[in-house]
């Protein structure tokens, strides 16, 4: 527990390298899209960030179920870390999406199912953090967190469907809510490669961040224990 495990250091190095390669590929290797121009390059990290966000929320559900079954505190740390990372990357996803939508759809925001669902997810997991803040007992905090992570994640696809039916009955006027309508493009092989590398790079980033977050949580718990011992 004292120093970082070798594997983690290795993971960090790999993450930094792949992120650097992905960044280079986005700016130097991928061709500039003919219709949209340079702003299309947002796409690579935009989708990758959304991917990490979903990965985080999915990991939180798995950790939640694992916690309720096994009651091992480490699963609570996994769940909390995964949701913190998921929240951050979903926010990056929404903001980069807005930056892209402004020139392409001519608006920062439309009430498209994906946009709306992503934002509701942000609110949902922000509520998760507030729930945790309101509970002092760590065991109960972990239990409630696990339950809410499960319930929240199950409601997300239903939210998406509900908004999608809403939109198919009422067509979207501004800009076309569906990305395949306005601002769609077909990827060249170079774009495809850049996209794949970005996804891999962000997945490594997720694994590395989550591991650090879990270690931080464990160290925090140790500090708490030591403080308790000192006051005794």
């Amino acid at each position: 527990m004292k120093s970082q495990p070798r594997l983690l250091i290795g993971l960090d190095v790999v993450t930094v390298l792949v992120m650097a390669v992905a960044t280079y590929m986005v700016f130097g290797y991928a061709p500039i899209e003919r219709v949209m121009g340079a702003v299309q390059k947002v796409f690579y990290f935009h989708v990758a960030a959304g991917w990490v966000g979903m990965l985080g929320f999915l990991a939180a559900v798995v950790a939640g179920v694992a916690y309720l079954v096994s009651r091992k505190p480490v699963w609570d740390l996994v769940g909390l870390g995964a949701i913190e990372i998921g929240l951050t990357f979903m926010l990056i996803n929404i903001i980069t999406g807005s930056i892209w939508a402004r020139p392409i759809w001519n608006t920062w925001w439309t009430w498209d199912p994906r946009l709306t669902t992503a934002t509701i997810m942000e609110l949902l997991y922000a509520a998760y953090l507030m729930l945790r803040q309101g509970i002092e007992d760590p065991e109960r905090r972990a239990r409630f967190g696990a339950v809410y992570a499960i319930i929240g994640f199950i409601s997300v696809p239903l939210t998406f469907f509900s908004i999608r039916i809403y939109r198919t009955i009422h067509p979207v006027v501004i800009g076309g809510g569906d990305p395949t309508v306005s601002g769609s493009f077909s990827m060249t092989p170079a774009m495809g490669a850049t996209f794949a590398v970005s996804l891999v790079a962000f997945s490594f980033l997720f694994a590395s961040l989550l591991w650090h977050r879990i270690r931080l949580g464990q160290l925090g718990a140790r500090v708490e224990q030591m403080k308790l011992k000192l006051t005794e």
Binding site: I120, L124, A127, M130, L131, S155, L158, T159
Partner: peptide
Amino acid sequence: ILLFPVVIPVLV
């Protein structure tokens, strides 16, 4: 705060 994001499908 906990309830509203989860019941949006019901409401819609």
